[in-house]
Design a protein around this nucleic acid. Structure first.
Lengths: 337, 337
DNA sequence: CTGAAAGCGCTTACAG
DNA sequence: CTGAAAGCGCTTACAG
């Protein structure tokens, strides 16, 4: 059935079906311009010949790349980033595949390189749109993309001219603090992430704000780089204060692990002496002793939402599309009593 | 400097440089056919206009996709797979990018789907070659790829007609057993992986063989699915024997975690009562108490080696290329004394 | 509703 | 060494 050696082109099908190549294209793409009978015949011939459209030819003729770009500023060697991004990519990929779109992925060292990759992709007509992760304060990417008219969706923040997938960081922080307060905690420490990232700033703000509303003491760490080391360091630093916290929130599970090792070193016990909580779940939260209370969220949902936003985009409407995701639920485990 | 709106094409450059489009192509690709002076002028004009080749046009004209395919039979929800594959992808991607090649990535549910994705990619001329991971016994992929003449490289085993990146499983097992024997262990249990995978079979064989040479008792588990649950289950099962093992080797860190939880449940202590070792390292091995002895290896090295093999391939020589990677080193930690 | 033609932006034989 | 032309495999205005 399948042509050996040479892959059949639209012209071969036209010949076999006794129509013009143009008609084949119309028929195969489900466009009007051919009668239903002709269409069926053409489709039949095409499938019997094992025909598949050449992506390159299609891209060139239609001037659509049928691809979405994603660049990752190379995650520091952290378990967290790997887990998060891998699942994120899975989510993006699954949606794109359904729509016959490709994912173009590149890792870079920093955001400056990222910007040049985005520009290059545009120049090469390699992608039709891009997904931006880790939105920052004064982010250089959105203005660049607006300038070259490359549609984009951001994950975690919203920028003018682009779509956005949003998570309610404030609600997460509130849920976390309420849980702690409910269990009698009065002095909460928060070991946060990199403050160049917008969501870190939102979380910090929410933490202080919400703590005040609940009438508890809030201790904010210095910004960290999400490493185990910095998690331990900040934990130790905050435990040296005279107003010692009675509970810790960590921005992710790696910081949490760092905090755990620090606490073990100080001969303190969890949850007897201290409560622990992670804003990001991971198998490690369930494997350590005691198991760590954490927010459950599936990064692939973020990815698939972003991809969907981009694909549903008829005529660049992305610019105004926003999808708000549900606030992750808190999995309460032994580390908070 | 940069053209606004319309991206410049080769024709625009030809016009500005007062040469033919063909000459521009030759100049820009560093091929002979234009004088050095002309080439320089053309390159100058191109860069001043911010020109970048359209990947689609180039692919169509040269009938090269400039892309490498990788399909992942969707990893079970395991930390291990995520970590491993993410790093693997990073390695592949870094090499491809250097050579201006794209990575086309797709996740599927099983190997049957994988085969049809590979065929589809070929039909669409989406990739020039592919990387195959998780080689199996009676693997259906190599014959299919040979039939459609799509070059491939396998990771972990070698197949006729394809290149291969190999790891010396036998040496790893030998190193592991020698370490245990050296510390006085005489009854080693090995909790292995899925036996549909070739490397599992090789490891099992090496385990029994090498154990005999060292004159120790070897206990092989049933095949597992790499889940924490199965790790615990097999550990318990083997600890119920009358000839109780004095040490355990686990195929990866997730199985190790399962084993750990089982051992805790039996009120046994590591390393006092039992030694533990993982054939795959991961942050979790360093985070649990006691820290677990494990082999250090960087999956990105596997990925970059595979990509390099594919790209260095002039005229389909891949078929005979084999790259043997260094045997990973063993990081000795508290779990083995 | 239908068909033949032009064109997407490159590369590469092919004559000069 | 150089240039003009054909062609890669599609899609899409454009006349019939």
């Amino acid at each position: 059935m399948t042509a050996q050696g040479k892959r059949p082109t639209i012209r071969d099908i036209a010949r076999n079906a006794e129509v013009s190549p143009g008609a084949v294209s119309l028929a195969l793409n489900g466009k009007r311009g051919v009668s239903e009978a002709t269409r069926e015949r053409i489709v039949e011939v095409a499938s019997s010949m094992g025909w598949t459209a050449s992506v390159a030819a299609r891209a060139l003729a239609s001037s659509k790349a049928s691809a979405v770009g994603l660049v990752l500023a190379r995650p520091r060697e952290s378990l967290d980033a790997e887990r998060f991004y891998f699942q994120f990519i899975c989510g993006v990929e699954s949606v794109l595949t359904q729509h016959n779109q490709a994912l173009v992925l590149q890792m870079v060292d920093d955001i400056t390189e990222e910007v040049s990759v985005l520009r290059a992709w545009h120049g090469q007509r390699r992608v039709d749109s891009v997904i931006l992760v880790d939105p920052r304060h004064d982010d250089p990417r959105p203005p660049q993309l607006r300038a070259i008219a490359l549609p984009f969706v951001t994950v975690g923040s919203r920028f003018a001219g682009g779509g956005a997938v949003l998570i309610d960081d404030t609600a997460m922080i509130a849920t976390a603090l309420e849980h702690l307060v409910q269990r009698g905690r009065r002095r909460v420490a928060y070991v946060c992430g990199m403050d160049t990232l917008q969501h870190t700033q939102r979380r910090q703000h929410a933490f202080l704000e919400c703590g005040e509303q609940l009438g508890i003491e809030t201790l904010l760490s210095n910004p960290t780089d999400y490493s185990e080391h910095s998690g331990a360091e900040e934990t130790i630093r905050m435990m040296r204060r005279h107003d010692v916290p009675d509970s810790f929130m960590f921005d992710n599970e790696i910081l949490t692990l760092g905090g755990l090792s620090a606490v073990v070193g100080m001969n303190l016990r969890i949850p007897e002496d201290l409560f622990f909580m992670s804003l990001e779940d991971s198998p490690v939260c369930r494997v350590v002793t005691p198991q760590v209370t954490a927010f459950l969220r599936d990064p692939s949902v973020l990815g698939s939402a972003a991809a969907r936003l981009l694909l549903n985009d008829e005529e660049h409407l992305v610019a105004d599309r926003v999808e708000k995701l549900d606030t992750p639920t808190l999995a309460i485990r032994a580390s908070t009593g």
